[in-house]
């Protein structure tokens, strides 16, 4: 029964994601209608076909698409929408896992220092006179994982990682890394604006290349986390109960921590620190589909994708484009307060 509900909800949300994405692709300075968007998408569809030169990718449709339209939709808007979907998916996924793992309503993907670590990496790259291809995402990704691993090492003693210690270690490390970021910003010079912009979280320089880097990572770890949804449920009963119910508690915690850290790191590396998606979306979905992670995890992730695509559309529609992190926080925080006042999230 859970399985059928999960499929139904996932299908519905996937449909919503496609719809929101198509609408988003029609919005922007250039006036491109839904039909034109559909034609660009269909034109890009290719199937492997054996032709004169051997096996090749051939489009089954022969549609008249202007080069300008193809560039705007296929080269600018769609990669940004796709990246927004991947990042939103990843953040909401990691947020759901962290809230369940910590049994704490305030937990979000950055709670064990992943985002702050990524920020240190990114700002360091911007401030330092180095130049590497894919340098910024690579630095951010490395910083994120180093911070998470550091927090884990600090909180682990004798093979056990108590979640309360982990939480406090995360807070302390975040405070320390915050100091490092401030110091680096002081010396960022010309890079200051870029750095601040990155810290706010945006999807402006989205390319298919970034999608190709982030998507496989998120997909692989999503499958891993999906395999641990039952353990996540049982862990909500407390670690001792989980042990008596046959869960290898410490090993499960390691998997959950590592997987959600990597997923968050991948998202933050390509988009900067976009807040509130990983905090709000899981709460909303929990109200709708209930606390069972078997259904909550995939639906939260999909809803996160929808939410970020939609908010990023708003972000790029304004007179002066602003980082989507501002929009998610500006919309997310009041909504969260509303939920809090209605006492929907008090009992976690």
């Amino acid at each position: 029964m859970v399985f059928r509900r999960t499929l139904a909800w996932s299908a519905g949300l996937s449909g919503l994601l496609v719809g929101v994405s198509l609408v988003s692709a029609t919005l922007g300075y250039a006036d491109i209608g839904p039909l034109a968007v559909a034609r660009v998408v269909l034109d890009a569809v290719a199937v492997p076909t054996v032709g004169a030169g051997g096996l090749g990718w051939v489009s089954p449709f022969d549609l008249e698409v202007s080069r300008t339209t193809a560039t705007i939709v296929g080269g600018l808007r769609l990669p940004r929408i796709a990246l927004g979907a991947v990042v939103g998916f990843a953040l909401a996924l990691a947020g759901t896992v962290m809230q369940g793992f910590f049994r704490n309503p305030m937990a979000d993907p950055s709670i064990i220092g992943v985002s702050t670590g990524a920020a240190v990496g990114a700002v360091a790259f911007i401030a330092l006179p180095v130049s590497v291809p894919f340098g910024l995402p690579a630095f951010a990704f490395a910083g994120a994982l180093l911070a998470a691993f550091g927090v884990y090492l600090i909180a682990t003693e004798g093979g056990r990682t108590p979640v309360a210690t982990l939480l406090l270690a995360g807070v302390a490390v975040q405070a320390f890394l915050g100091a490092v970021i401030s110091y680096l910003l002081l010396h960022a010079g010309d890079g200051l604006e870029t750095a601040i912009y990155w810290l706010m979280g945006h999807l402006q320089n989205s390319t298919w290349g970034r999608v190709r880097v982030a998507l496989p990572v998120v997909a692989v770890f999503f499958v891993i986390l999906l395999a641990y949804t039952r353990e996540l449920n049982v862990l909500l009963l407390g670690e001792e109960d989980a042990h008596t119910l046959g869960v290898e508690v410490e090993r499960t915690k390691h998997v959950l921590l590592a997987a959600s850290s990597v997923v968050t790191a991948a998202a933050v590396a390509v988009s900067g620190v976009i807040g509130f998606v990983g905090l709000i979306v899981p709460h909303v979905m929990r109200l709708i589909v209930g606390p069972d992670h078997r259904i909550l995890l995939p639906t939260s992730a999909l809803a996160g994708a929808v939410f970020l695509v939609a908010t990023d559309t708003v972000a790029r529609m304004g007179p002066a484009e602003m980082p989507v992190g501002i929009v998610t926080a500006a919309l997310g925080a009041p909504f969260f307060l509303y939920l809090l006042r209605r006492r929907e999230v008090h009992a976690l």
């Binding site: 909500l236 009963l237 008596t244 119910l245 046959g246 976690l348």
Partner: peptide
């Protein structure tokens, strides 16, 4: 292993902390 033990020994604890609200049947 925890799994092997979980098939051999069941425990009724004094109290349990149920974070999110599951239905009785789910628990």
């Amino acid at each position: 292993s925890a799994r092997a033990l979980g098939r051999t020994v069941a425990t009724v604890p004094q109290e349990t902390t149920l974070a999110f609200d599951f239905d009785v049947r789910d628990v």
